[in-house]
Amino acid sequence: MTTRRRWGLAAVVVAIYAFLLAPFVVLALSSLSGGEAYYISFPPRGLSTRWYLAIPASYLRSFAVSVAIGVASALAAGLLGVAAALGIVRGRYRRKELLKAFFRAPLQIPLVVSGVVFLQFYYVLFGLTGVRLLESFTGLLLAHVFISLPFVVGTVCAVLEKFDRRLEEAAYSLGASRWTTFRRVTLPVIRPGVFAGMLYAFIVSFGNVPVSLFLVGPRLTTLPVDLFYSMEYDFNPSILALSTLVVVFSVLTILLLQRLMGMDVLVRAGAKE
């Protein structure tokens, strides 16, 4: 490659990174602004952490709800998604594509529409049975599993299609039952796909506003919805500070999970020496 083309390529790469990182840079720097102004000031006027210290403690509660919902929907979507993917990839029937499309459907419905549908559904359910799902953890969880399931199904289908089924035959021939084989052979081999899907599920759930918006209330709300309302009715720069913390938290979580997922590989590679 000529030097000229190399520089050209580097410029494109830098531009792409700049495009991806710009919003975060604006957010993080604005949150560190030292002024008194109750609006977004970029570039920041002097640096200070005052807005970080001014974050209301009330956000902690909605943050906890978001994490809990995110983790719960990742687990639930993981469980359902693996089962669904096994059925789609391993099942013996025609029209597999139809089934795949069915599990992809939540992605194709605008999130706002899904939110309204869940709201309406919970109303009707309450009217019919007295079961109250609105403004409840379960209600929120169901909706979040609905929107995050396609991500797990997608990634797990991808790894299952590449999975060598003779690994299972080898396990059977060695005396392992079907369940043991799944637990000791199939699952560990497809685990990266399952984890990746669950990570998506968590991120989708954790950041969701349009669906949650319809299902939360004063007694139970998620962090993104909380932030949304604050920005609309009660803006102050401590929201920027909080948002920055959330971004940092997400990045750290992802790094940590990747580290954990890849851990056994690292340990064994080290044991070789």
């Binding site: 035959e169 080898a170 396990a171 059977y172 021939s173 392992a176 052979v185």
Partner: peptide, 16 residues
């Protein structure tokens, strides 16, 4: 296969 008491070797090893 679990109850047949066999050992199987495949072409491309198929190790776990």
């Amino acid at each position: 296969p679990q109850q047949r008491g066999i050992g199987m070797v495949f072409q491309d090893y198929v190790l776990f």
